[in-house]
């Protein structure tokens, strides 16, 4: 399986103020692939994934070094339009965060930001996005009720639908199922698996089985010594990482022999 490269990361490093938390990461992320990012707590997985839609811009004094290109364009160049980037690179957060608006308005929020659509067109987008997020059947009769009335799992699928509605190509997910029950988690995993047909997905997860189940590629980040930045220890096919890791540290981590 040799796919097109969607994202290129080259000598990437990240600083919070003077503290360097990520260093020297180089990897290519393939199109229509699910890439899992694993590593111990605090190693910088969230920091890393927020790189791809420049959400780290919001943090004062943060600094990026190296290069991150999406579709061949370095997204940290000065002339990059962050709005355009975030349309292309959507994000699903750890805790479901629907807006306290109706289900319909949640989905329509993104499209309405970026263009003026007719009512029919908007309705079509909402229906289409909810269908893709496997939520349509559950909510089609209550599109105009408050999204906060949905269950946690439904809320998270709503958040995914919200991203799909702006025609993203890449979806970043930072532990999207960690606050959900097993059945909701199963639904999210099935959904992610379906979405890879049309989207490039990067997912942070703490759950080794989850990474093994759903991803095709796995990247393992690790901080080896306190006060040192985390590095990319190994990046390979998920199969290989979980059956025959090339690095002792990876093996230790995935078999749970790690602090």
């Amino acid at each position: 399986m040799s796919n097109n490269i969607k994202i290129k990361v080259k000598n990437y490093g990240f600083y919070y103020g003077k503290i360097k938390v990520l260093s020297d990461i180089t990897m290519d992320i393939e199109q229509n692939t699910i890439t899992a990012i694993i590593g111990p707590s605090g190693c910088g997985k969230s920091t890393f994934i927020r790189t791809f839609n420049r959400m780290n811009d919001l943090i004062a004094n943060s600094k990026v070094t190296g290069e991150v290109s999406v579709d061949g364009i370095n997204i940290y160049k000065n002339n990059v339009d962050v709005v355009e980037l975030r349309k292309k690179v959507g994000m699903v957060f750890q805790r479901p965060n629907p807006f306290p608006k109706t289900i319909y308005d949640n989905i329509a929020y993104g499209p309405r930001l970026h263009a003026r659509y007719s009512k029919q067109k908007l309705e079509h987008i909402v229906e289409d996005s909810l269908k893709k997020a496997a939520l349509w059947d559950e909510v089609k009769n209550k599109l105009h009720t408050n999204a906060l009335e949905l269950s946690g799992g439904q809320q998270q699928r709503l958040c995914i639908a919200r991203v799909l509605a702006v025609n993203s190509e890449i979806i970043l997910m930072d532990e999207p199922a960690s606050s959900l029950d097993p059945i909701s988690t199963q639904k999210i995993e099935d959904l992610i698996d379906e979405l890879k047909e049309n989207y490039t997905i990067i997912i942070v997860t703490h759950n080794m089985q989850q990474a093994a189940r759903i991803s095709q590629k796995t990247a393992f980040l690790l901080t080896e010594k306190i006060d040192e930045p985390a590095r990319l220890i190994e990046y390979d096919d998920t199969n290989k990482i979980f059956t025959n890791p090339g690095d002792k540290r990876t093996e230790n981590y995935i078999t749970g022999r790690f602090g």
Binding site: N53, G110, L113
Partner: peptide, 27 residues
């Protein structure tokens, strides 16, 4: 207003101002 809502809005491509008057103030 929870920060998660601001982040969700910004991540969908809204700017600070749109986030303020479409999400923060109504909430």
């Amino acid at each position: 207003v929870p920060n998660g809502l601001r982040n969700a809005s910004l991540a969908l491509g809204a700017n600070k101002w749109e986030t303020t008057y479409k999400i923060v103030v109504p909430t």
